[in-house]
Amino acid sequence: MIIQRISRFISNFENLMPIFAAACAVLAGIAILSLPFVYTEDQLYPKNIDRESPLDPYDRGGPPFTQADIVLQYPENSPTAGFVTAYLTPFSWALANTTLHTGTTIVGHPGGILDEILYNTRGLDTVVETTILFIAFAIASYIFRKGSP
C-alpha cells in the first residue's frame, strides 16, 4: 500500500525536483554536523603571494623561457610544465616593467599559472567543459530556431 503511494508520488515528474532538493538539503545538513573536515596542507598547485612583484597575486617564479617549479600530480607526464607559467608576451613584459598593479591582466594573457593548469596539465577538463558549453548552446539554438521558422 505504502509503496504504491510512494511510487505514485515519485512518478509525477512535478515532484521530482522537491525530492531531489530535499535529499540534497538533508545530506548538506549531515555534512554540517560532521564538520570540521581535515584540510591537507600539502595541496597541488599551491599559492605563494609576493606583494612586491609586478605579477602580484600570480607570481609563480622563474625568468621567461626557464622552467618554473610547480607542484603537480604526475610531473613525468607533463615534461614542459613550468614553461608556460614563466612565459610573458612582449606586451605583458612591458606592462610588468611599468606598473605594479596589472598582475591579473598579465596572467590573463597566454602564459601564466592558470593556462598551465587549464591547457597543459589538466587539459582534458577544459575539453569536456567546452563540450558542455557547446552541447548546451546547441540545444538552446536548436529550440530557438524551431520557434521561428
Binding site: P46, L114, R122, D125, E129, A136
Partner: peptide, 18 residues
C-alpha cells in the same frame, strides 16, 4: 590554491550553459 581557480572556471561555464 591555484587548482581551486582552475576548477571554478569550468564550474561557472557549466552553470551558465545549463
Amino acid at each position: 590554491t591555484d587548482l581551486a581557480e582552475a576548477l571554478i572556471l569550468p564550474g561557472l561555464v557549466v552553470g551558465i550553459a545549463e
